[in-house]
Measured scan of single mutants.
Amino acid sequence: MDPFLVLLHSVSSSLSSSELTELKFLCLGRVGKRKLERVQSGLDLFSMLLEQNDLEPGHTELLRELLASLRRHDLLRRVDDFEAGA
């Protein structure tokens, strides 16, 4: 399986429902409101961002910004580990 997708799945499974709600709010300018209403998990949101090329294995800035906004430094370390091994 693609290591970047494994990372996104790992991050998604670590998010609380309130954190997902916050991420959806933060992505309002990037993803349409109707699409965001269908998001049920972090993976749903990340999939939309992947489709729009806002997220890519070599383009993790948005993911970092979102996780920093949540103050999830543990998840930021996972992104660091991914990039160190990528």
Rank of each mutant, 00 (worst) to 15 (best):
V31N: 03
R64E: 03
L23T: 03
P3C: 08
S47V: 15
H59S: 13
D54M: 14
E22R: 12
S17P: 14
E51M: 10
D2S: 07
F46I: 04
E51L: 08
K35P: 07
Q52F: 06
R38D: 14
E65L: 09
S47N: 15
R72S: 02
L8Q: 02
L63F: 05
L23S: 02
L5K: 15
G85W: 07
L45R: 00
R64Y: 06
L62N: 05
L7Q: 01
D81K: 11
D2H: 07
S10Y: 11
R34Q: 13
S16L: 03
E83P: 03
S13G: 07
G42K: 03
R77S: 10
F82H: 05
C27E: 02
L50I: 15
S69L: 08
G85C: 10
F25E: 14
S18W: 09
V31R: 01
L62D: 04
R30E: 04
L28I: 14
S17H: 10
F82P: 00
R64L: 03
D80K: 08
L55V: 11
R34D: 15
V11L: 15
M1K: 12
L20H: 00
G42Y: 03
L20G: 02
G58P: 08
E61W: 11
D44N: 04
S16A: 05
H9K: 15
L63W: 01
K24L: 03
R64V: 06
S12P: 02
V39D: 00
E37A: 13
Q52W: 04
L20F: 05
L49Q: 03
G29P: 10
D81S: 08
A86D: 10
D81F: 05
L26R: 13
Q40Y: 11
L36R: 02
K35G: 08
L45P: 00
D81I: 09
L63E: 00
S69N: 15
A86L: 13
R34H: 11
R64M: 04
V6P: 04
R38Q: 14
G29T: 10
F25T: 15
K33E: 15
E83R: 07
L28Q: 15
D2L: 04
R78D: 09
L28V: 14
N53V: 05
C27M: 11
L62K: 05
C27G: 02
D80V: 07
D44S: 05
N53P: 05
R71V: 05
S18T: 11
V79I: 09
E22S: 10
D80S: 08
F4G: 01
L67K: 00
F25G: 14
K33M: 11
E61I: 11
S16W: 01
L15D: 00
L20T: 06
G42Q: 03
K35S: 12
M48T: 09
V11R: 01
L7V: 04
L62F: 12
T60L: 13
R72K: 03
L28S: 14
H59T: 07
V39L: 05
S47E: 13
R78S: 08
F4N: 01
L36E: 02
V79P: 00
S41I: 06
V79N: 00
N53A: 10
L76W: 03
Q40S: 15
G85L: 10
D80Y: 07
D74C: 00
A84G: 12
L50V: 14
H9G: 13
F46H: 00
L26I: 09
D54F: 14
S14A: 10
F46M: 05
A68L: 13
L75E: 02
R77Y: 06
M48P: 02
P3S: 14
R38S: 11
L49V: 04
G42V: 06
L8E: 02
E37I: 07
D81M: 08
V31P: 00
A84M: 14
E56H: 13
K35E: 13
V6N: 15
Q40F: 09
E56K: 13
D74I: 00
F25V: 13
D81R: 07
E61K: 12
S41R: 06
P57A: 12
R38V: 12
L50W: 13
L70Q: 04
L36F: 05
K24W: 02
D80A: 09
D54R: 08
L20P: 02
V11K: 01
R34L: 13
G29D: 15
V39I: 11
G32T: 10
L15G: 02
S13L: 09
H59G: 11
S17R: 12
L8V: 04
S13H: 12
G85R: 13
S13T: 08
S12L: 05
E22N: 08
V31I: 10
G85Y: 08
P3E: 15
F4R: 02
T60H: 07
R64N: 01
H73N: 12
F25W: 13
L28P: 02
L70P: 00
F46V: 04
D81A: 09
K33C: 10
S16F: 02
R30G: 03
L15N: 00
L55S: 06
R71G: 15
C27Q: 03
S47A: 10
T21L: 09
A68P: 03
H73L: 08
H9V: 06
G32D: 14
R30S: 06
V79W: 00
K33V: 10
E56V: 12
S47T: 15
L23M: 13
R30I: 08
L55W: 06
H73V: 10
K33H: 13
V6K: 15
S14G: 09
F46L: 06
L50Y: 15
S14V: 04
F46K: 03
L7F: 08
M48K: 05
K24Y: 04
P3R: 11
V11G: 01
D44V: 05
R72L: 01
S16I: 03
L49E: 02
E37W: 06
L63D: 01
L49M: 08
L62A: 06
S10G: 12
S18L: 08
L50F: 11
A68K: 12
Q52H: 09
L45H: 01
L23A: 06
L63N: 03
F82L: 04
E65F: 11
F25D: 15
L23D: 01
G58K: 10
T60K: 03
L55G: 07
G32P: 12
E22Q: 15
S10M: 08
P3N: 13
L26Y: 10
R72N: 03
R78Q: 12
V11A: 02
P3Q: 14
T60G: 03
F25N: 15
D44T: 06
V39P: 00
L62P: 09
L62C: 09
L7C: 05
K33Q: 13
L75N: 00
S47D: 14
L7W: 03
L23V: 05
R72T: 00
S69D: 12
K35C: 06
M48Q: 09
L45V: 08
L70N: 03
R34F: 13
S47R: 15
L67P: 02
S47W: 09
L66H: 04
M48D: 05
R72I: 03
D2F: 04
G58S: 09
L50E: 06
S13M: 15
D2K: 04
L55H: 06
K35H: 09
L66V: 05
R30Y: 10
R71W: 06
E22P: 00
G42A: 13
L15V: 04
S18E: 14
R71C: 12
G42F: 12
H73S: 13
L55K: 06
V79S: 00
N53T: 09
L28H: 14
H73D: 15
L45I: 11
K33G: 11
S69R: 13
F25K: 15
